[in-house]
């Protein structure tokens, strides 16, 4: 048991942080919504009704989509784009998808390589991009959920203001949808870009995301 915890501490810790944060968000969002409802003389809602509402769904989904987009873009960008001195970048002569030998696929696979890396053909092609495919699918799914839940929450607000609801096709062209979307995108791109650049000159001893403390600033593609 202790070995299992030690070997999976990163995923377990982040899973726990996710659940605690989501629970906290549900309580804070519920209290915030009921403040607004009371101020406008509408009835308050229960916590269970809130977590099943479009208000909660859109607030969750808009952050999910941007996080998964961030990692998808980073995954794809780091295939081709380099950053001299950054541990986030590959070595400067390795831009691109690299050779089968470098990637240990097909005849170059190791005895314990994943089966789809060994077989060749479409399975190896799919497996070679499987992380990006799944991250991209979760991004698109979350963005779709944001658009539908945001549409419902926006129309609920419009009805409170005695306005005609919008069609979904109009909502995805509305400023509310794009404001929710872009305010998340800009912060994700800033954070990733900042990490890639600051990691050239700054260190975190012991972290896999940093170069070793004594590594020169110009060393590229080296993680601690």
């Amino acid at each position: 048991m202790r070995t299992f915890l030690r070997h999976n501490a990163l995923s377990l810790a982040f899973g726990l942080l996710f659940l605690v944060s989501l629970a906290g968000q549900s309580v804070a969002g519920w209290l915030q919504l009921n403040d607004l409802q009371s101020a406008e003389h509408f009835d308050t809602v229960s916590w269970t009704a809130y977590v099943a509402s479009s208000d909660f769904a859109v607030d969750v989904a808009e952050n999910w989509q941007s996080e998964f987009l961030q990692f998808w873009v980073y995954l794809m960008a780091t295939v081709w784009l380099l950053q001299k001195g950054s541990p986030e970048s590959k070595e400067l002569d390795k831009a691109g998808r690299e050779s089968d030998e470098d990637q240990k696929v097909g005849p170059h696979a190791l005895p314990d390589s994943p089966a789809w890396a060994r077989t060749g053909g479409w399975r190896t092609r799919v497996y070679s991009s499987s992380l990006a495919i799944v991250m991209g699918a979760i991004f698109l799914g979350s963005w779709l959920v944001q658009s539908v839940a945001g549409w419902a929450a926006f129309n609920e607000q419009r009805l409170q203001q005695l306005q005609v609801p919008l069609a979904w096709s109009d909502y995805v062209r509305n400023a509310d949808f794009w404001s929710r979307t872009l305010q998340n995108w800009q912060s994700e791109f800033l954070a990733v870009g900042t990490l890639a650049v600051l990691a050239i000159y700054l260190r975190q001893r012991g972290s896999s995301q940093s170069k070793p403390v004594g590594e020169p600033h110009g060393a590229t593609g080296i993680e601690g």
Partner: peptide
């Protein structure tokens, strides 16, 4: 048309707005 706690009903040429109070739909406009 219903969106969460709010609804709009068009009855003939009349438009009414409704909301949920204690689990019941009631007219707010």
């Amino acid at each position: 048309e219903v969106f969460d706690t709010m609804a709009r009903a068009v009855v003939g040429s009349e438009t009414l707005f409704l909301s949920r109070f204690d689990g019941r739909w009631l007219v707010v406009a």
